[in-house]
């Protein structure tokens, strides 16, 4: 396929594994962890971040020859803030409950390091189409971590997925109990640590030597 060859393919698929923004580049941790107590807000957050990063990348990439280097941070922040404000208003209009669960974390997409990092590192030096794919790739790379966390935490924390009961009543009758600990914030970060552990055990070249 001509549209997905070489560099563009790397831009799209790299962030899913070896260049994952969350567990390898350690960007965007701030908002990743607080929204994953349930699966639904995690999915919404993943979609929101993917959309914002992809669009912001395209806009910055289109403007990259017009922006003077000295003021590029302000321009990037303004583009990001505008997109985030639009996403936030859309969520308020069409998914009010989820928006309330996400609280300030929708707004915090603006200071999400993934967003700034991709605009600075990729969109400023590449055309709109690779930038768009790079944004999608990074958004999805961030998204799958969020979805895994949300899945594990909701399943073990409250026995449900997307609000539907998954663990059958028989289990509870037999003495099974939900692990309320999973719903608490520190478990998100502990699970991320475990994901990093597994990921690095499989990819030996990512291990830190020091």
């Amino acid at each position: 396929m001509a549209i997905l060859s070489g560099k563009t393919k790397a831009a799209l698929l790299g962030p899913l594994n070896k260049d994952n923004p969350v567990i390898v580049q350690v960007l965007g941790i701030c908002s990743a962890l607080a929204v994953t107590a349930k699966l639904e807000p995690a999915i919404v957050m993943a979609i929101a971040v993917t959309v914002v990063v992809a669009l912001a990348n395209v806009i910055i990439s289109l403007l990259r020859k017009l922006i003077p280097t000295r003021v590029r941070m302000i321009v990037q922040l303004m583009v990001a803030a505008t997109l985030v404000a639009i996403v936030s208003e859309l969520l308020k209009a069409y998914a009010f409950d989820v928006n309330r669960q996400l609280s300030v974390f929708v707004g915090l997409i603006v200071s999400n390091c993934i967003l700034m990092g991709r605009m600075e590192a990729f969109a400023l030096g590449n055309g709109p189409w690779p930038s768009f794919l790079d944004g999608i790739g990074n958004g999805l790379g961030y998204g799958w971590i969020l979805v895994v966390l949300g899945f594990v935490r909701e399943l073990f924390g409250s026995g449900t997925l997307l609000g539907y009961q998954i663990i059958p009543q028989i289990f509870y009758d037999a003495g099974y109990q939900n692990n309320g600990f999973m719903s608490l914030a520190p478990m998100a970060i502990l699970l991320t640590g475990v994901i990093i552990w597994i990921h690095r055990a499989r990819n030996k070249d990512l291990q830190e030597t020091e």
Binding site: I23, P186, I189, T192, G193, V194, I196, Q207, E208, E210
Partner: peptide, 13 residues
């Protein structure tokens, strides 16, 4: 595999 980043996460938790 836990060195550096991984252990920092777990300590934070």
């Amino acid at each position: 595999p836990l060195k550096g980043l991984g252990i920092t996460f777990i300590i934070t938790a």
